[in-house]
Amino acid sequence: MRFAVVGAGAIGGYLGARLALAGEDVTFIARNRNLEAINARGFRLIEEDGSERHASTVRAVQRMTEAGPQDAVLLTLKAHQVRDVLPDLRALFGPQTMVVTMINGIPWWYFHKLAGPYEGRQLESVDPGGVIAQHIEPERIVGSIVYPASELLEPGVVKVIEGNRFSVGELDGARSERVEALSQALMKAGFKAPVARDIRSELWVKLWGNLSFNPISALTHATLEQICRFGPTRELAAAMMREAQAVAEKLGVRFKITLEQRIAGAEAVGSHKTSMLQDVEHGRALELEALVGSVVELGRISETPTPTIQAIYAATSLLARTLAEQRGRLAVQAQP
């Protein structure tokens, strides 16, 4: 299959390198130092066990017109970055091209092909004005849940921290030929890639932790382990998760694990900084709308109260605004 990876970062690099090593045709859409490094040296992958693999056959282009139509476009950007690539994205589309959304949080397509009273609703928090939906037809979209953690050590070099699972699924739950082909290609590359019958319910299990632990960590500068082992913040996360569960269940989602099991899973990760805390420390834009603001909006749509989530969302939104206005970063450092 022909794959275009839009976002040559930690997850995109992990996927693209492994797919290329498995014999797939992989093109990265990249810029600046990433573009130069990939074209000069390919992509180097440091696996979880420390072994190194070199994907020498990958190529990188800056303009999507140079890549041409693909079988699959892997969107491995952060949610707020999708709008930036829309003007050129259609250059990657052929008649049968699928767009695989490997993005954290509630996606813009959440209500597309969702049978029931909310079908076709637009989410302003993640797609103001419906701009993304206008550029990417819902028929192209395949959902995906990203479980691994990896790190871009330098341009063209990714280190896998842990995990290799990427669930994939059609928005209507169909087990189509294309989603089967995608699953097979990912499994051939060494990933666990089950076809999900209900991609939204699986999405919520991951979001359950992200919507709580990410903003709490951004505000407190604490790791997952610290948040879970400090009674007040553990209860704060649980309160946010209970509200989110009520919202999700109003929308037809059923959780297959308990809230305590989800918290225990986060605690087991250990002294890990969430992605949102890392963004605060590096002065990057926060994935706040996709992870938290969208849940507040879904609460309004489903007429479900979310007072705790709204309070944390307000505080984290002001932090994000302050950092952006000051072009600053914020980190806790030990005194010498």
Score class of each variant (00 low, 15 high):
8 A>P: 14
8 A>V: 09
9 G>A: 09
21 L>A: 07
24 E>F: 03
25 D>W: 02
30 A>L: 10
35 L>T: 11
35 L>Y: 14
42 G>L: 07
47 E>N: 15
50 G>M: 04
55 A>D: 09
58 V>H: 08
60 A>V: 04
67 A>H: 09
73 V>W: 04
73 V>L: 06
78 K>G: 10
87 P>L: 14
93 F>G: 10
99 V>P: 10
103 I>K: 02
108 W>I: 04
108 W>N: 03
111 F>H: 09
123 L>E: 06
125 S>R: 14
127 D>L: 04
129 G>T: 04
130 G>C: 03
133 A>W: 01
137 E>C: 10
139 E>A: 15
145 I>A: 02
150 S>R: 03
152 L>D: 07
157 V>Q: 08
158 V>I: 12
159 K>P: 04
159 K>E: 07
161 I>Y: 03
161 I>K: 10
163 G>M: 02
164 N>A: 08
166 F>D: 00
178 R>E: 11
181 A>F: 00
184 Q>R: 12
188 K>A: 12
191 F>A: 02
192 K>W: 01
197 R>T: 14
197 R>H: 10
198 D>H: 15
202 E>S: 02
203 L>K: 03
208 W>G: 12
209 G>V: 06
210 N>S: 11
221 H>D: 06
222 A>D: 02
224 L>I: 04
236 L>P: 07
240 M>T: 06
243 E>V: 08
245 Q>T: 12
250 K>P: 01
251 L>E: 07
256 K>N: 07
259 L>K: 07
265 G>A: 06
269 V>F: 06
270 G>R: 11
276 M>A: 11
288 L>H: 05
289 E>V: 10
289 E>F: 08
290 A>D: 08
291 L>W: 05
294 S>R: 03
295 V>Q: 08
300 R>V: 02
302 S>L: 05
304 T>M: 05
304 T>F: 07
309 I>G: 04
309 I>K: 06
312 I>T: 13
320 A>D: 13
321 R>G: 12
327 R>K: 15
331 A>R: 15
333 Q>Y: 06
334 A>F: 03
